[in-house]
């Protein structure tokens, strides 16, 4: 991989060499100062093209009475925002989004963490187990939707057939609010748990062994090792997993949409999420692109707030334990 040979060090400096050395020093300073911007520039250049324009466009749309097909109408200021927050459906969507998000993300991250810890052990046939965990990620969404529709069908589904055998009455997966959220959370976790497991595993593998060795000398129990060494060392990755799960979870769209044949979130909007509501406003019967954009921006702000809270929490939790482990090491 490394193809560039190390440069020859200059041993003695003639005046000419001295100038070269100065130039090198200057270049080096520039290098330190400006090359970071060079490295991050591809992202920002492309983002400006394909990300920023849609963002600005959408915010412009959200301030107008804007029909998807009819196009721009009057400038209405923040009226679209005021209208949508007065709609009961918006709040119902928000409730469902948070409920599905909590029901899916919390177990997902916890399971992923434990699975990763298991896979981190010295196993036979490591590749097999690791790849196996990631298998659901390659299943095409159309197949995932179909399979889970069959499993959670109210009258003919496998879930209710199995529950009946253990004496639990049929559950209204498509009528009860909580049941529908649990079913959707299952669908989400099926596809994404393995993915997060591997991310955490990659980070666990990078934890220096001597930290564990010190703990073994200390006679720390396995659980304690996990809690005071593994978790704190994973902090950046945990932050990553939690932030991306938060963003993905609050934008959840595909799974609840696939959950029944109409894709509208149930006859009583039992599982209609904010993004589904946004889509219905913009592309459904109303075709109100302005209001849909307003919902998108409100959701964007909500995600930022929740993301910031989660970031703070994660830092705090793993941070405290980190200092604990330092104390432990001293002892």
């Amino acid at each position: 991989m490394a193809v560039i040979a190390p440069e020859q060090e200059q041993q003695e400096l003639s005046p000419k060499d001295q100038r070269r050395f100065d130039r090198r020093q200057r270049l080096s300073r520039w290098d330190v100062k400006y090359s970071p911007y060079l490295y991050i520039s591809p992202f920002f250049i492309l983002f400006a093209l394909v990300g920023l324009f849609p963002l600005v466009y959408t915010s412009w749309v959200s301030l107008h009475d804007w029909n998807l097909i009819g196009g721009k109408g009057d400038f209405v200021g923040f009226e679209n925002y005021a209208t949508v927050v007065q709609q009961p459906l918006f709040w119902r969507g928000l409730r469902n989004t948070f409920s599905i998000f909590l029901l899916s993300s919390v177990p997902q991250v916890i399971i992923a963490l434990f699975l990763a810890a298991m896979l981190d052990a010295n196993l036979r046939a490591k590749t097999f187990w690791r790849m196996g965990v990631l298998l659901p990620y390659v299943v095409m969404p159309v197949a995932v939707g179909m399979i889970f529709n069959k499993v959670f069908a109210d009258q003919s589904g496998m879930a209710n057939a199995l529950l009946e055998k253990v004496g639990i009455g049929p559950i209204g997966w498509h009528s009860d609010v909580l049941a529908s959220h649990i079913a959707i959370a299952t669908m989400v976790d099926f596809r994404w748990t393995g993915y997060n497991t591997l991310i955490l595993l990659a980070a666990m593998q990078a934890i220096p062994q001597d930290l564990y060795e010190a703990a073994v000398v200390d006679g720390a129990a396995r659980w304690r090792q996990f809690r005071s060494i593994t978790i704190p060392s994973l902090r950046p990755t945990l932050i990553f997993v939690i932030i991306t799960s938060t963003i993905g979870g609050l934008q959840i769209f595909d799974e609840p949409r696939m959950f029944d044949q109409t894709g509208q979130g149930g006859s009583d909007r039992q599982w209609m999420t904010v993004t589904m509501y946004l889509y219905e406003l913009g592309w459904g019967a109303q075709k109100s692109f302005g209001r849909a954009s307003a919902v998108a921006w409100i959701l964007f702000l909500i995600i930022l707030v929740i993301g910031a809270i989660n970031f703070w929490l994660t830092r705090r939790i793993s941070g405290t334990e980190s200092s604990e482990s330092k104390k432990g090491a001293k002892r």
């Binding site: 983002f47 990300g51 849609p54 991306t244 963003i247 889509y279 995600i303 993301g307």
Partner: peptide
């Protein structure tokens, strides 16, 4: 930037 709902970006 990840927090921008993708459905909306389609038209622009």
């Amino acid at each position: 930037t990840m927090a921008v709902p993708t459905q909306l970006g389609v038209v622009p």
